[in-house]
Structures are given as structure tokens and as C-alpha cells.
């Protein structure tokens, strides 16, 4: 099934908005407005090929990196940035920072431990199965997280119970500055799927259309009750592990990957095919930057929570 021009344009817009959000968040980290750091997702926006095709009633678990999960699901950039700045108007009233939930858009929250989301994803799958629904859970994780027992316990459980979970490993090749070969025994995380009796597929993570195509097959499979799948998106993070971190990876590597930028890559393909005009592409970028600048201004001007709010929200 090929995407219509409108669907491709919508994917491109989501990627551009996500990139613009990342740039705004990076600037707010650099200026010190974000009291912690920001873990930029620049370079990994190809994952949006999977995210944008989720239904409104589907679920997503995210990683610590990037904002494309939120942007792709329709979260409000103003409330996202307000949260990163610790403001009352944020999604978590300033209590979570990077740990953001947007239940309205099916994003269940962010774990402070990598691999913390996988067991939650199978729980959501359990609920869907028990209610007899046809929603799916898309669960993102990094190749480093493939080391964790939570990941394996959850992949096994999803397979045993035939849960509607789509596991998506974003393999950006590094934990911090350490290359994956140091900590992961197999070069292809997708190979782990065989251990759990599910399909596993390596995908070019910087090709959003390829990601879309592979994810569509996995989502259809999950939605039909045929169980989980594992996709591995080969990608690269352009920024350091965190905006506050020092990057000692080989600069030549980043240069090479910049040439394969997922956002520019999709733009060029759509320009070539005539599904996007240069004027439209420029307008999309300008609108996204304007939107995120306004969101940043909103977040900066937004008030901090009253200290008394620290004593709220523990129990329902």
C-alpha cells in the first residue's frame, strides 16, 4: 500500500515540526531555561514514519530521547516546553520535566530507567486484549535498552500472550560515547525477535517512508490479533547524548549521517516526485519554527508552580 501525497505531506510536516521543537528545546537548554538537560532527537525523526500512522485510540511508549513521539501524537508543544522548564502549565505541572505523560494522546509517561516502559507496554496490551479492542501499543526503545531484562521479559510475555505490541528499537549505535559493539552481542537487535517467535526486521531508520511501510505491516499484524513484531530502525543521533554532554564520537561519522538527514531526505524525495513544492516546504519549515518560538515564549513567560503544589498528586 503506497501513501497518498497528502499522507506523505502530513508525515513531512510532523518531521519538520519535531525538528523545530528539538531546536527550540536545545536553545532553551543552552540558555539555562531548562534546569536539567535535553536529550535531543535530531537525526532520529524517521521514527515518525511509524508513529504518525497510529490511530487516536492507540498507545505509545517513548524513550528518554527526543520529542517526536509527542509531536507525532498531537501533544501541545507549549505544554511540553512548559514542563521542560518546570512550569505549572506543563503536562505534569512541573513535577516530571523530561518525564512527561499525555494520556489524552495515549502516551503513558516516561520512565526514569531505560527499559522501564516495556513491561508497561505489555500491560496495555493485556488491557486491549481483555476488553476485546483492536488498538495497538507501539513501544520504542534504544539498542542499549535491548540489554535489559525488562526488554526480554516483556518481549517474551507479549509473544506468549499474543499481545498487540509493536516493538520498535531505534538503534542509534551508541550509549553515551560508547559504541554498541561494546555492550551488545549481536549487531542486529532485530535478530532477537527469533528468540520470541515473532517477526523481526531491520529498517533504514532515516528513511521515514521505509519505516512507515515496515511499521504498517507490524501494526496490521498486531491489530488483527496475530501478536507482536520487532522492528529495528538503524539511525544516528546527531547531537551528543545530552545537550550538556561532551561528544567524543568520530566527527566524520556525524558528517556522513548528516548527509542522510531523515527530514531533508523526505523533503528531497517529495520535491523530486512533485508531491511537495519548494515553496510549500519552506512554508512548512517557517510555520513550524514560528510555532515552536511561540511555544518557547509561552513556556518562558508561564509561572512556576506554587511550592505548596509539591504536596499534591501523590495519591489519586
Amino acid at each position: 500500500m503506497t501513501l497518498t501525497a497528502v499522507e506523505k505531506q502530513a508525515l513531512y510536516i510532523a518531521m519538520v515540526r519535531s525538528r523545530a521543537f528539538e531546536e527550540a528545546a536545545g536553545a532553551l537548554a543552552a540558555s539555562g531555561d531548562i534546569p536539567a538537560s535535553w536529550l535531543s532527537g535530531i537525526g532520529q525523526e524517521g521514527t515518525l514514519g511509524a508513529i504518525v500512522q497510529l490511530r487516536a485510540d492507540d498507545y505509545l511508549t517513548i524513550t528518554h530521547r527526543g520529542a517526536y513521539g509527542f509531536i507525532g501524537r498531537g501533544s501541545d508543544p507549549r505544554r511540553l516546553l512548559a514542563e521542560l522548564l518546570g512550569k505549572k502549565a506543563g503536562y505534569c505541572k512541573g513535577k516530571g520535566g523530561r518525564h512527561i505523560a499525555d494520556l489524552e494522546h495515549g502516551i503513558l509517561g516516561k520512565s526514569g530507567t531505560v527499559g522501564g516502559h516495556a513491561p508497561l507496554a505489555i500491560g496495555v496490551g493485556t488491557a486491549i486484549q481483555n476488553w476485546g479492542g483492536d488498538q495497538v501499543v507501539l513501544s520504542l526503545f534504544g539498542e542499549g535498552t535491548s540489554n535489559r531484562g525488562t526488554t526480554h521479559a516483556s518481549m517474551n510475555t507479549a509473544a506468549v500472550w499474543q499481545l498487540p505490541v509493536v516493538w520498535v528499537c531505534e538503534n542509534n549505535g551508541y550509549v553515551g560515547n560508547v559504541p554498541a559493539s561494546v555492550y551488545t552481542a549481536t549487531p542486529d537487535i532485530a535478530d532477537m525477535a527469533a528468540s520470541y517467535g515473532m517477526p523481526g526486521e531491520v529498517v533504514d531508520g532515516n528513511d521515514a517512508l521505509a519505516v512507515h511501510d515496515a511499521a504498517r505491516r507490524a501494526i496490521v499484524r498486531a491489530r488483527s490479533g496475530s501478536g507482536p513484531s520487532l522492528l529495528e530502525l538503524k539511525t544516528y543521533r546527531i547531537r551528543p547524548f545530552a545537550e550538556s554532554a561532551t561528544d567524543v564520537r568520530d566527527p566524520a561519522e556525524a558528517v556522513a549521517w548528516r548527509d542522510r538527514d531523515p527530514v531533508a531526505g523526505l523533503r528531497d524525495r517529495l520535491l523530486e516526485s512533485g508531491e511537495l513544492t519548494l515553496a510549500d516546504a519552506e512554508a512548512v519549515t517557517a510555520a513550524a519554527r514560528e510555532e515552536m518560538a511561540a511555544a518557547a515564549a509561552y513556556a518562558r513567560e508561564s509561572p512556576f508552580p506554587d511550592p505548596a503544589a509539591a504536596f499534591e498528586d501523590l495519591y489519586a
Binding site: 500491560g123 493485556t126 531484562g149 516483556s154
Partner: peptide, 16 residues
């Protein structure tokens, strides 16, 4: 896997 048992309970609880 206690991880799967307890963690899946959390995920299921989050969606009702």
C-alpha cells in the same frame, strides 16, 4: 518474571 507481572499490572492500570 516478576518484572513482567508487576510491570504489566502498571501498564494495564494506566489504561483503566
Amino acid at each position: 518474571s516478576e518484572t513482567a507481572i508487576a510491570g504489566s499490572a502498571v501498564g494495564a492500570a494506566l489504561v483503566g
